[in-house]
Each structure stands twice: as structure tokens, then as C-alpha cells.
Design a protein around this nucleic acid. Structure first.
Lengths: 122, 122
DNA sequence: ACATTGTGCATGCACGATATACACGCGGTG
DNA sequence: CACCGCGTGTATATCGTGCATGCACAATGT
């Protein structure tokens, strides 16, 4: 459970949890077959309600990254290295499309965007 | 008033209006000194409430892109070409920072991001 | 049975979106 | 010059939706 929750962020808490665990799974930091912490324990660690954790877990299950067994726990879906890369790119591309739409609405061309990226990406 | 509102978008309506007008001003499509449509007229055209338009106008004023005169109307702030470019980059960079944080959370390096960008940016 | 796990329901609160009534500014008219 | 009407932005009260929560219920395994 290496999660950082920002109370100042405009994103809902359950989505912050979802995104960070999602990233950790797709980076291979959380191995398939192992289980996630019980929602109660996670709730205590993260200082949030059980239900907030559950909503994050539900999103993860909807994305096919974990599966739930009532009474037992939640387990990480086993993925091959190729599948992880594939899902990671899918996820990033989906977000990137709307990001690009925003940049383009300001009339920026591809090379301008790349130039700005280089100045910010440390 | 060349605005497109998406009801399926997760973004609030007033923010969609704000972003699009903001972009049009900073691209020079809306010249300084000219006035924006009255909020009532804009509300009819955009099929939204007066107050929703007002909230968008307030955001524009807070960003220094327009100024309001009670009883007269709302007018676009006069900006030099350099100021427009500057503000445009400021705006885009602010958004780009959080975009990059997202990409990096998935472990992507700068060159991978650029490669993905090239495949999507048509 | 009991302890541990996930699930479902009812509540409080913040925010987006709305309609209606109010205040300010300008210009025509007596 | 005063007044009133029209067009402008402004403020108040209300409704619906979604985030976040606590508490009680169901399922699993020892």
C-alpha cells in the first residue's frame, strides 16, 4: 500500500486510489496472484472510509486488473509482460487523446507541444 | 459564439464554455475591444441557463481575458501578440504539468511519451 | 460458532445547473 | 432636466447529482 492521497486535488479520492494502484499493477510492482489488502485495513492505512476503498476496488475490477471473491479477498489478475505493456499504453493513450484535444484547441502544433514537453519533463 | 457543448463530457458546462472562449481569445479569433454577447443571448444560443454563462464569464474575468461593466456588457481585454503567446503557453503548461504527472505514474519516459504523441497527433 | 472478508442501505454535504427577482446604465421623451 | 423604459449584469432560493461516510448484513474458512 504505497498510495498518496491529495486532499487539495480536484480528483475524487476513490479515483486517486484507483489510478495509483492501476499504475502500480501495470508497472509490475504488484505481482499477479498476490492479494490486495482487505478493504478495512486499506481504509485504516489510507485514512478514508471503507466505502471509498470499495469504490476504487470496483473500478479496478471493472478494468480487469483484479478479481473479487466474497469472504476471501481481492486478488490481482495475472498478466503477461506483453499484456501489461499493452494495457498501459491503452490507458495512457485514452487520457492522452483528451489532453491533445485541449492543446489543439489553443492552436498548438505537434512540434510546439513536444518542445513544451521537453522543457517540463525533468 | 462558436461554442460546442458536450453533454456526455465529464467537465462542467461552464468550464467547457470558459475553455473554448479562452482559447479563441488567445488565438486572436476574438479581437480585443469587441464585446462578448450578452449573457441572455449567449444562454439562448448555447441552450443553457443565464447563470451557467455568467459563471463562465466570471472565470474569464478572473483570468484577465475580459472585463465587465455592469449595465453595459462584457468586453475582451486588449492583448499584444506577445502577451497572447505568453498567456497561451502559461495556460497550456499548467495543464501539461498534471498530464505529465499522470504519464510518469505509469513509468513512461519522455521519449516514449513523444512517440505515443506522434502516433495520435494527426 | 467465530473471526475475517466483501456487500448493501440510508445519511450528510458540496457543487453544478436552473428560474426568478433585483440593481445599474444609457437614451429617448415630456 | 427629470423620468421612465429597455438592455445590461447581479443576487437569492431551489433542485438534482455525486462524493464520502457509518452501520448493519451476507458469505467464506477455521
Amino acid at each position: 500500500m504505497n498510495i498518496l492521497i491529495s486532499n487539495t486535488s480536484e480528483k475524487p479520492i476513490y479515483q486517486q486510489i484507483f489510478e495509483q494502484i492501476s499504475a502500480q499493477i501495470l508497472k509490475g510492482e504488484l505481482q499477479g496472484g498476490y492479494s490486495l489488502p482487505p478493504i478495512r485495513q486499506a481504509a485504516v492505512e489510507l485514512q478514508v472510509s471503507i466505502i471509498t476503498v470499495k469504490k476504487a476496488w470496483e473500478e479496478l475490477e471493472r478494468s480487469g486488473l483484479i478479481y473479487t471473491v466474497t469472504g476471501k479477498g481481492c486478488f490481482i489478475t495475472e498478466l503477461s509482460a506483453e499484456e501489461m505493456i499493452q494495457k498501459r499504453h491503452e490507458t495512457v493513450l485514452k487520457q492522452m487523446e483528451s489532453d491533445i484535444a485541449y492543446y489543439r484547441s489553443f492552436g498548438l502544433r505537434l512540434e510546439e507541444v513536444i518542445e513544451l514537453l521537453r522543457t517540463v519533463y525533468e
